[in-house]
């Protein structure tokens, strides 16, 4: 098997591996946290970010399949199926995030939650079912229920839900539900940020807001391809790299904001008072006369306190 790839392809493939590695690492951290806390919240969070991770694996694997086995119809269909599945996993992140957020951020009633997930799943189910049907039975040169976005200069393409005609309703519906969900969450976290009295909670919620914003952008950046960014090879690569960075940032911010590791909590809290005094950033507080009353000479530096105490005890 002679592997001759265009130079642009390497950027996508290497970026895919880097994204996959970083996301896997973060997912493992989330799983470790889940086993520590064993709460429904941490489980839903894993499912949210696992969906992003699965999309990344499937997309990268599909690129590799297309690049390694050019012209092989079976591999091509498998790659297309993987890509479409990845897209729907990414879209389903919205649903996981919605249910996760319903634990603390928003309090929708059961009927609303049922309608939400039913309508959302209907969009994903119909779009997915029709796309798979078209991949296996339709004409690849003229796809109807999915779109092929040709990445200029690369040995593979992007597969996406249909972007033309009335079929746009499918992706439009998912986009609208996702946007409303994420916007609600951003508004809610911003409101809570203002109400929180504790500095760590305030800053933590700000990170959470940012992570939701980035999660939203993850889907939005891919839309740049629909508007023609795929036609210029370097721009196409740049958009893909940018998307990768946004995905990684979204998951990192999500991990930091939602989980709030101990080291981050300490960092957000700021240095302890004693550390500030110790490093000279704050003046020393008043000394107790009793601690120094038997000192042979006046205290000139804090290091002498030890000696003075020892002396006074003698």
């Amino acid at each position: 098997m002679a592997l001759v790839l265009s130079s642009y392809s390497y950027y996508y493939l290497i970026a895919g591996i880097i994204n996959f590695t970083v996301l896997s690492f973060l997912l493992v951290l989330l799983i470790i946290h889940f086993f520590r806390k064993r709460t429904v919240g941490t489980f839903l969070l894993i499912m949210t970010y696992a969906s992003v991770w699965i999309n990344e694996i499937l997309m990268t694997l599909a690129f590799y399949l297309e690049a390694l086995y050019p012209g092989n119809e079976n591999y091509l269909k498998a790659a297309q199926t993987m890509q479409m599945t990845g897209v729907f996993f990414l879209v389903y992140t919205i649903n996981w995030m919605y249910f996760f957020a319903n634990r603390h951020l928003i309090r929708d009633n059961d009927l609303f939650k049922l309608l939400y997930t039913s309508i959302f799943s209907a969009f994903v189910g119909v779009a997915g079912g029709l796309a798979y049907y078209d991949i296996y039975t339709g004409d690849r040169n003229n796809p109807f229920w999915y779109s092929i976005i040709e990445l200029a200069g690369a040995d593979f393409n992007l597969n996406y839900p249909p972007t033309q005609g009335l079929r746009l309703i499918l992706i439009g519906g998912m986009f609208a539900i996702g946007s409303i969900t994420y916007l609600r969450l951003i508004v809610r976290t911003t409101r809570l940020t203002r109400k929180a009295k504790d500095l760590v909670t305030k800053k933590g919620l700000r990170i959470v807001s940012l992570s939701i914003l980035f999660l939203w952008l993850t889907g939005l950046v891919l839309a740049l391809y629909i508007f023609g960014a795929n036609r210029i090879p370097w721009l196409s690569v740049l958009v893909y790299l940018f998307r990768g960075m946004i995905v990684i940032t979204a998951v990192i911010l999500g991990y930091l904001g939602w989980i709030m590791p101990e080291w981050l909590r300490r960092r957000l809290r700021g240095k302890a008072w004693i550390a500030k005094v110790y490093t000279g950033k704050l003046p020393e507080p008043p000394k107790s006369k009793e601690n120094i009353e038997k000192a042979p000479k006046p205290i000139t530096s804090p290091t002498s306190a030890n000696q003075i105490v020892e002396i006074s005890e003698q």
Binding site: I274, Y278, P285, S288, N291, P302, N306, V309
Partner: peptide
């Protein structure tokens, strides 16, 4: 070592922990 402290006024706390 023994220090006289007050966690209300802060007296002696820094010296003690120093």
């Amino acid at each position: 070592a023994c220090f006289v402290t007050s966690a209300i006024t802060g007296e002696g706390i820094y010296d003690a922990f120093r």
